[in-house]
Each structure stands twice: as C-alpha cells, then as structure tokens.
Design a protein around this nucleic acid. Structure first.
Length: 421
RNA sequence: GGAGACGUCGCAUAGUUCGGCCUAGUGCACCACCCUGCUAAGGUGGAGUACCCGUAAGGGUACCGAGGGUUCAAAUCCCUCCGUCUCCGCCA
C-alpha cells in the first residue's frame, strides 16, 4: 500500500508514477475523493458514538423509574450510531480498495514503459563461443543423466522433471554455495513453509495481478507459494522491529510452485520454465533511507554468484510497466544462454520500499518513538534455472561439462560431468 | 482422529459467576524526577497500538486472539473461525 500521506500531500508524484507504469492515473483522483469521503464519515460516526457512550453512563446511573424513558431515547441513538458505523466501514473499505490498487511509487530513474523498455546497466563476461554445434541444456541433461524430462512428465505432467545424478548434485551444490555466500554476508538462513494462508498471500501482493499463477488448495484454503518471498515477508508481519543494529537479513530456501498459466507454448523445452523448482532467496528489512544502498548490495551479491559460476550476464533496470505492484525498482540479472543466443533471467531483485511493509504492518521505532513502516527488499541468490546456463556455457564437444571451480568443493571435488555410456 | 482446558494493555496475573461502579485493577520490568553516603530500599509521576479533528496544547473513537450477533449498553452472553496447552489413539 502506498503512503496515504503522500496521497494528500503530493498526488502529482503518484500520478507521474502511475503514468510511467502505464497504469490508471485516474485512480489517484478516485483515491483522493475516497479519502475525503472516508474522513467525513468517520467523523460523523465518532461524534455519534461519543454521544452514545455518554448517554449510556446516564442510563446506567439513572433511578429505575426514569430508566424506561431513557432507554427509549437510547434506542433511537443506537440506530443512528449503527447506520453511521456502517457508512464509515463502507467508506473505509472503498478507500482501501482504491488505494490498494495503486502501485508503489517508482524511484527516480526507473525507465518508463513496458517490458521492452528496460535499460541495460552493464554486460559482464564474454559470451561463450564454441567450435562445434553446442547442445541445449535438455540434451546435455539427458546425455549426462542429469535431467529426466520424460519421466517427470510421466509422473506429474508437462513442465515437471527429475533432477538425477550430477543434476541433483549440481542443484544442491549451487544452493549450498549460495547459502555459504549468504552466511558470509550475515544472513540468517530460513527454510520456509510453502503453504500459506490467504491473508499472507494477499499481504505480499500476489493475489492481485498474479492470482492465476498460484496453486490453491480449496480443501484447506491454503496457497502454494511461488517464492519464499511470501513466507519471508510474512515472517515479521504485525511486528515492530529493532533495526538499530543494522538490517535484518534472511536467506530463505524453499521449493517454489508456479502454474505458468498463460505461458502455454513458451519455453516448453527443458527446465527453463517449470511448475516446481528450488530457490534461495534473500530478503532484507531495512530503514527506508537505506533501501537504495541495500538494493545495490543485493545486486552485487547476486553478481558475485554469477561470477562464481563463470557465466556471462547483463544487469538490467526493469521498466516501470514491468514491475510488480509492490516494487519501486527492480534489477534483473540475465545470463547468456548460448543455444538461445539471448539473455535469460536468472535473478531478480526488487526494492519494495515501504509498500509491502505497510500492507503487512511491519514497522520500526524512530528516535522520537513513533512507529513507521520499514522498507523490504528481496532478491534471488540461486535457482534451478541456473543449471540451464551453467550446463550450456561450460559444455565441451563430447557432451561433457566442466564444473566451474567455485562449485567443485560442493561436488566433492568433481571437475567434470561426463556423458553416460 | 477422540476428549478437555485456555487466549486480558511488554511479561505475569485479577476481572467473565449475575452485562452498566472496567475510562480494564495489581505485581514485575521500563522512563523521568525526588529522597537516601555508597551493588539496596523508598516516594511521586509517566508510559500501549491505530485512526479522526487540531499549527499546537489538547480532544475524540476503536482495540481484552479474529470476525459476526444479541442489547440502550459486551472483556463479560450467543455463533463461527484462528491459535496454544493437556490426555488418549494413530503414524513417521
């Protein structure tokens, strides 16, 4: 949720942000009107309620012969209070609905426009070249006995797979390397629930535009999370945090589930786009004024992971129209995928400023003792998808794959994945 | 899965019998000041969260796990949900 104060003080800021996102500018004016409406109806209700409270005390202390008449009067007042209360509740709900649909205010410098309007901040590492016809990761995975797509489909349907042998080991190695990286930076590791309640899913903003991306279990009224961000953000919901010793940083590991509705026919081959994968996610709670610096730190940690995997990549500043509603700015790191001749997203890191925290009621105390929302940020440190880029980038003519040096300690010293006979 | 108990302002507790004297008492911890010659004790006062009005001082409303209901009036009565604990059963 945006800061309601901003709505009153500088609605133009919000209008510009909505415009950059390609979202409704008119929504801002509706919100301003709903805010005014809400406040007058609250005033009316509270005034009546105060009268009723005062009257109640006279009724209680009145002699019994007067009580009957007083109660009669009180009944009329109660009716008015009830109506005013209903009106106030309705106005509040309407205000919340409208304000809730306004996206976070984008940060100065975020490119306007849609998916294709991103700005490339930097390209790092040479793109792999081969003096043979490179195999794609699906083929390599089969050759190495690392990925078994056919059996995944047999057991669970399309977009499911088994990681097997060195494939399973590579994924665990990658996750462990990422975890060590996180530990070195002071993160607290968390293994998070992947089934969450509706309030938590709604609080993190995933039930809005992404709702048909999410698996839902009606028998239990629970949602399967598409990222541990959901549980990590919910972790401190309704709490007042102490950030005086610096940011709270969590590294959450979990399996992620995505329906991939609407992407039928897209990335059908291999494990680039699947219904289930694993991810190590960074999530940090920081003071609002430190959020942008923290965002840069998250990106640099991600970059060091890609560098450790010896991948070629670019960092992009995602355009306003392609941000989720919670994000004020988002950097994606995309790795070069040789057989596709293009960059594909391996990580994403969002600065949600105070937007997500306001909805989840996560605050800290300022020096004056007032409570105010914290800023939250999240970013990927490793996912199953990385296997695609790692396998393809480091392949050799015979179908073997050289293991990046940094990963070897996590694979018992294994230096090369050999094709199976 | 069966049976039962419980959820109160940081922590601990009172209040729920029989609705109004609860604007929720008390202890501990906390903050400020006072007193006291010293690691202690005592005194006075303050202190929750959110929202509304107000430049402010201040005033008001709501909150007793959550949401509904009954009532002139709900911590207290009724319903639903969530959670915790104990015992039994079953099973990793």
């Amino acid at each position: 949720m945006i800061d309601p104060q901003l709505l009153r003080d500088s609605p133009d800021t919000l209008r510009r942000s909505q415009e950059a996102r390609g979202a409704s500018v008119q929504l801002v004016d509706q919100a301003v009107a709903a805010d005014a409406d809400r406040r007058t109806s609250i005033q009316q209700f509270e005034k009546l309620r105060a009268e009723q409270n005062a009257f109640g005390r006279t009724v209680a202390s009145a002699p019994s012969d007067q009580k009957r008449a007083l109660v009669l009067q009180a009944q009329a007042l109660a009716e008015q209070v009830k109506n005013a209360g209903q009106k106030a509740a309705d106005a509040e709900a309407e205000f919340t609905r409208i304000v809730g649909s306004i996206g976070n205010v984008t940060i100065e410098g975020v490119p306007a426009g849609g998916e294709d309007n991103f700005v490339t901040l930097r390209e790092v590492g040479a793109q792999a070249t081969f003096d043979f016809e490179p195999r794609d990761h699906a083929e390599l995975g089969e050759l190495l006995g690392a990925i078994d797509i056919a059996r995944g489909v047999k057991v669970s349907g399309s977009r499911f797979y088994f990681l097997k042998g060195v494939g399973a080991r590579l994924e665990l190695a990658l996750m462990n390397m990422a975890l060590d990286k996180a530990l070195a930076e002071g993160f607290t590791p968390l293994i998070t629930p992947t089934l969450v309640r509706p309030e938590i899913m709604a609080g993190t903003g995933f039930l809005g535009e992404h709702s048909d991306e999410i698996y839902y279990l009606p028998a239990d009224d629970l949602y399967l999370t598409g990222t541990s961000e959901v549980a990590l953000a919910g972790f401190h919901s309704d709490e007042i945090l102490d950030l005086s010793n610096g940011p709270l940083r969590y590294a959450g590991w979990s399996t992620c589930y995505r329906r991939e509705a609407g992407s039928a026919g897209k990335d059908n081959r291999g494990i680039l786009r699947v219904h289930q994968f694993n991810k190590l996610e960074m999530f940090t709670y920081v003071l609002p004024e430190d959020a942008e610096a923290e965002h840069d730190r998250l990106v640099s940690w991600q970059e060091s992971m890609l560098a450790a995997c010896e991948l070629s990549y670019r960092v992009i500043d995602v355009a306003a129209g392609d941000l989720g509603s919670s994000a004020a700015r988002k950097f994606d790191i995309e790795a070069w995928v040789p057989t596709q001749g293009t960059y594909r997203e391996l990580t994403s890191t969002s600065n949600c400023t105070t937007y997500q925290a306001r909805r989840l009621d996560i605050r800290y105390r300022t020096e004056s003792g007032k409570t105010t929302p914290v800023a939250t940020l999240n970013g990927t440190l490793a996912t199953t998808r990385w296997l695609v880029a790692i396998l393809e980038t480091h392949q050799q003519a015979d179908g073997s794959v050289v293991v990046p040096a940094a990963l070897r300690p996590y694979l018992g010293g294994l230096e090369i994945f050999e094709p199976q006979a």
